[in-house]
Design a protein around this nucleic acid. Sequence first.
DNA 1: TGTATTTTATTTGTCGACAAGAAATCGCCG
DNA 2: CGGCGATTTCTTGTCGACAAATAAAATACA
Lengths: 234, 234
Amino acid sequence: MTETDPASVPERKRGSGVKMVYELLRDEILDLVLPPGSPIDEVQLAERFKMSRTPIREALVRLSGEGLIDTLPNRSTMVANIDFLNLHTFFDALVLMYRVTTRLAAQYQRPEDLVAIRAAQARFTAAAEAGDALAMIATNAALHAAIAEAGRNPYYISLFNRLLDEGRRILRLYYQSYGDRLPQQFVDEHEDMIAAIEARDIDAADRLAKAHAEQIVAQIQALFSRNQRHDIDL
Amino acid sequence: MTETDPASVPERKRGSGVKMVYELLRDEILDLVLPPGSPIDEVQLAERFKMSRTPIREALVRLSGEGLIDTLPNRSTMVANIDFLNLHTFFDALVLMYRVTTRLAAQYQRPEDLVAIRAAQARFTAAAEAGDALAMIATNAALHAAIAEAGRNPYYISLFNRLLDEGRRILRLYYQSYGDRLPQQFVDEHEDMIAAIEARDIDAADRLAKAHAEQIVAQIQALFSRNQRHDIDL
DNA sequence: TGTATTTTATTTGTCGACAAGAAATCGCCG
DNA sequence: CGGCGATTTCTTGTCGACAAATAAAATACA
């Protein structure tokens, strides 16, 4: 299981091994290619990437620091579970960060930020029109990350990225279950938010971000309440 | 330089090495025993702790993930600098987290939380009465960490701890410069906050936390404006 | 046949050594 | 005497191997 390009690493530069493993493993976790609870075998990864266990372990330590994997001392290490029982803490933090980062973006945006934001929005719109749920999930996170960057608060950026990552896993589950039914609504809401940011209208940015976030949260909550009869085998 | 107990590690259990190095290095960084910009030499640490470079490196990767050290690829690694030019982002996030965590503590506190909070407050009061600035810094952070724990939002707890860590470094600088002049005011403000948490008065908790945070921020800002003539050689 | 104990097997944590990269040093030539 | 390239040095990144810790399997015993 978890097969991926076994013949794409003939030679590789000195510091690139860890980064490669880190990013690929991270993507696989966030896209649920490695679902929560999946065991992670160092030696297996070492063979797969044709490198020693040392850089693998460094990548795993990094991922562990971000809470994406859990490590049992002296025993197995596995993909971190999604804490469904405390999702409200996630939603709470997510809504707050949506608001704060969008506010700050409206306050501190520079022209180059808007270029990046619009580019991300274009990618999101394309994904939405193509009906590509996976791309929508990724580009939505990227868009909001770009907005957060414009706010220029590294502490918020860091926490928000972590929340967006976790959100990718949860949304992945969402679209996985409900056959990629995608709301055009998101595109419009994003447009309004970007317009408020560009106009430096802080209050409007805050209000729109709050509505946007709460709408997403409500959708996810509706999904989970409809799905509670299903076994969530994690 | 950086001499510390060279003869205290005769034998040690299997997984304890990294943890020990991590915690000790972390404390030394936060207490400015290792000031920002200090070079960190792996082999030197390895000799100092009588262990291989491997566990040292793992501890360093952890610290790097928390932003406490910066690593130049293939080149030196050193204690992360304090970004004085963007302190406002720190203050902004700090005030917000003070408020949010205190609010949530008032909302979700349980009896055992109050026990922990009161214990932390007692330690802080003792440090304040003893005029021990270093202990005040550490116990103040511990008190607010305990309050955050009562709020039970792991995302907030994580970010707040990071902010409190950075705050420890900044406050350390503060008291270093100003000869341990300590405000009794903090003790009283803490008492009021704890009372609001205990009474589950969310609005009061929020208001008090905001005032408390902004007061601390104002003090630090006053310090830096008075100190701008001094060279800050970091 | 069920349970406790020893043995095996698997996986992690640690080690010492080597090689690559980059700065500092040295030597060469103008 | 000064600039420039080669060499040396020093630190990091990677490797393969070994040892400890734990779970699973096998064995002994009641």
